[in-house]
Design a protein around this nucleic acid. Structure first.
Lengths: 195, 195, 195, 195
DNA sequence: GATGAATGAGTATTCATTCAT
DNA sequence: AATGAATGAATACTCATTCAT
């Protein structure tokens, strides 16, 4: 059978993605105490397999976080690109964040990673920078909302932080033992930032 | 031979408190990966000493969380007992939570503890129940605020959750690499729940 | 990827047996104070290796004891299956027990295990039940001996116990600092139970 | 109150004896895994108290063993001093050994102590020498029995060992899960060494 | 590539022993 | 003397990582 480098490469990336999917779930469920074996088992592979795709556990952790942050960033960019009033954009962001199960996972993993010394400062800085980049996008949305009158006045950076905070932490509600956030929760949240 | 049982008992409680103080700080800084030796070193004692006061690491963790939740509850009760408009009470709560350094610590520790299987379900349930008890106090405050017109309309339970979420997550700001919450942040926060 | 599952399985069992052999020797030499590292060193492996085959030190201890009891039971069954006078069967049992070095090991380990609270009651019960099953076999031999006139009269259960006691404790002679039991010792022993 | 050196000394010895009594029981029950705290608790004292009377745990262990061996020796000497046929003397020894609860304890403790490296060779030698001294006494009894026709012919040393073995191990019966030795057991035992 | 056996650094916990009171 | 707080050496066990097959 003739080699097919492109196909090989794609297969490799697909398997790497599968491992990351598994890792995101297990990290979220078990926190930083997650073992490589847990991830491998979730992916239906051996732990040796995992090391064929990632250098270390830390490496996997960084990849999970990065993917989560980039997905959130994509969401923000999609909202920015939407037509219509800013309110709709916020509803879109809130709904997306709260619907995708993995969001809460990524956020919690990120929070824990920053909170321990498992990662070195360089890695933490990378995470923080991606976080700041995402907040910039949200600030733009806030500013647009203030211009079209759908968001209250006030420092857009602070407002962005508060809004992000609300969304992110709402994702943890089920984990905290509260009822999962509903449509009504989203409405309330949007009223809170309305003028 | 204990010459003074009362004094001994008090000294013992004092040392236990010192260990808890140390543990709260280290757990917050290093997360659940905290080692007993870290706690002992922070308390300026040997790890053997720590085991004279706590049965296990898990035991210390539970004690740290419980103390944090009870301190938050005290805060809420103090606010409820205050005279004056509801808005002042919210400001008091927000200011207390954001000022005491240990609050953010306790909250993060709690979040992580619930998020891993380090604790068994029974212990997690105890934590969740204390959390719900505290939320009930906050719901009372929200309802009072709605009666005197200082809080927007809406389901008080949902509003309480959102408000708590804002405060608690703001406590993590510095950790997340953002600027620490200021007086202005608090004003903004209070405007968000105003009608 | 296991190219040869059968071979792998066999290799695994072989290694497990090697660990048990090492453990039996070390337990016998060092008693219950034996460290996992001692066992691993005796087997020429790391302690991590040992944990790949046994769940805990207690687990190894139980396996060593069980193997010893089962080997003794096999001996008794072989004697029962022998042709000829009962006296020959007793000689066979005595000689086997005193010759195989490991017998004394297993017996001493068993004695110590029952004598401490390292094992829980359930495990001790399992050991005692295997002991009683073995004694039943010996009782059969005693009864056959009484029928063919090679064993003195008396309660067969008591006689079985005394005979077993003699054999088992003789195995400890070297340990006790006495001369090892000889052919002559066996003759004497057999005369003691003769009518 | 005037000092009374003699009285002080006696009080001290009495307390030392109390500790030894406690230690013998606990060592027998828990084996070499016995903790100093167990002994102290059994004696109704603090562990610090125990160190006022013994240098180390090893020290206590040696004292317990020595006392047991000496008590056994006293028994043998008392038998030797008895009037009458040798058979009565054996019955006396067997009955004493099996009746005094502490005998089995001491024997098991001795067995375990010799079987580990908790004691150094010097200490083990001391124990073995006391054991050999006791066996000499028993050999004298056997020889007397052979002279008066109440004991079978054969090497007296071997016979002594077998007899001692029977008695000692019978002491462990209850521990092994068998019925405790009875009057009938003793009769059987005496018949076994009869000509 | 895939597997899982093997290793050993790392960690929680225990307990003999010391010593201030 | 008596107590028990404090220490730290010792030890069972875990788990990330490597590597032979």
């Amino acid at each position: 059978m003739p080699r097919n480098p492109l196909r090989d490469q794609q297969a490799r990336e697909e398997r790497r993605r599968q491992i990351l999917d598994a890792a995101a779930g297990v990290f979220a469920r078990r926190g930083l105490l997650t073992k490589i074996d847990d991830i491998a088992a979730e992916a239906g592979r051996s732990h040796g397999h995992v090391y064929g795709y990632f250098k270390s556990k830390e490496d996997i952790l960084m990849a999970v976080i990065q993917r989560g942050q980039e997905a959130y960033g994509e969401n923000l960019r999609a909202a920015l690109a939407m037509e219509g009033p800013a309110a709709d954009k916020f509803r879109f962001i809130a709904a997306s964040a709260l619907s995708r199960e993995s969001s809460a996972d990524s956020y919690m993993v990120l929070l824990q990673a920053i909170f321990t010394d498992l990662l070195d400062e360089e890695q933490k800085t990378a995470i923080r920078e991606r976080g700041l980049a995402n907040r910039k996008l949200l600030v733009k949305l806030i500013e647009a909302g203030q211009r079209d009158g759908s968001v209250m006045s006030g420092d857009p950076v602070q407002l962005a932080t508060l809004f992000a905070t609300l969304i992110q932490n709402l994702m943890l509600h089920e984990t905290r033992g509260y009822a999962p956030p509903s449509e009504e929760t989203i409405n309330l949240l949007l009223r809170m930032i309305a003028p």
